[in-house]
């Protein structure tokens, strides 16, 4: 096999890890609260800016900067729920979609206002590994590993704890969980916080690889939605697998043509698949 193709495939798998992490966060929020956060990728952008300023500007040690970003973005997630989602919870689904869309506008423009449109890099240069003449970026490798650890941690949390079980239960029967003593509003806050924390974690991983700018959300936001829908909105395992399918299409497509066209392939694949399986790849 062509060595560069192999390299593309490996990079695709590594990219898939971060996308899978984001898809998990978005799917968790959708599955439990039944709201699509159109602005999810822009919340990641906030996290990337937080890391940039903490580390590159104020010289906070990187691990501490990461920790602060994760906690900060988790708090942001809770605030988004309290101030934007909670007031429209009983509205038509499209109003909820639009409320988070308004937040998308706000976050992008506010970031432009505060930081300008410059591309900023935290300036951490990690080595490139060479394994049998294949070059693999160390940053991507770390991102992949951490994303997997994050996904496993989430899985254990959902599987083993009372709150986790309640979170899974609530997406199966919204009304009846109250009878079990579960306070729906509290679960929503917890889930928004976890969704935010996952976005914060993804921000850490992306900050190592990409420059941050106010519109970075537009580049991978639509891809995340596509992954979630492909896996079946709310289906976390489906989304996890779909992340790797899509990242492979992007990676291999990018190898044979250009980056933009590889995304065109991915989106087209998505549209066609929606016609074949309208409720996602893994719908029963």
């Amino acid at each position: 096999m062509d060595i560069y193709l192999l390299e593309a495939i490996i990079n695709g798998i590594l990219l898939g890890g971060v996308l899978a992490l984001l898809a998990l966060g978005l799917n968790l929020i959708f599955g439990v609260i039944d709201v699509v956060w159109i602005c999810y990728a822009d919340i990641v952008m906030c996290g990337m800016y937080a890391i940039f300023f903490l580390y590159a500007q104020y010289h906070v040690p990187l691990p501490l900067a990461f920790l602060i970003a994760i906690i900060g973005i988790a708090a942001l997630g809770i605030l988004v729920h309290l101030f934007i989602i909670a007031p429209v919870l009983d509205s038509a689904p499209i109003n909820q979609l639009l409320a988070t869309g308004g937040l998308l506008f706000f976050l992008q423009s506010f970031a432009t206002l505060l930081f300008g449109t410059d591309f900023r890099n935290i300036g951490v240069r990690l080595p490139v590994l060479e394994v049998a003449t294949i070059y693999v970026s160390f940053a991507r490798l770390i991102a992949f590993a951490v994303a997997l650890i994050g996904a496993v941690a989430l899985y254990v949390f959902l599987k083993r704890t009372y709150i986790g079980t309640a979170i899974r239960a609530i997406s199966q029967d919204r009304e009846i969980v109250g009878l079990m003593g579960v306070d729906q509003r509290r679960i929503y806050l917890v889930v928004s916080g976890i969704g935010g924390a996952l976005a914060g974690l993804a921000a850490c991983l992306l900050a190592l690889q990409y420059d941050v700018h106010p519109f970075i959300g537009n580049t991978f936001g639509p891809v995340i939605f596509m992954i979630c829908v492909l896996g079946g909105l709310g289906n976390m395992i489906g989304g996890f697998i779909a992340a790797f399918v899509i990242s492979q299409i992007i990676a291999i497509g990018g190898y044979y043509s250009s980056t933009e066209l590889s995304y065109v392939f991915a989106f087209t694949f998505f549209i066609v698949l929606m016609f074949i399986r309208p409720r996602g790849l893994f719908a029963p």
Partner: peptide, 27 residues
């Protein structure tokens, strides 16, 4: 319409269509 892609799904499929045109124009 044939496959009853509605609601969120319709919104997101059409969103993908927008992106296809955008990215094709850029490509």
């Amino acid at each position: 319409f044939r496959r009853r892609v509605v609601g969120h799904y319709f919104a997101l499929v059409t969103l993908a269509l927008s992106q296809v045109v955008l990215l094709s124009l850029v490509a």
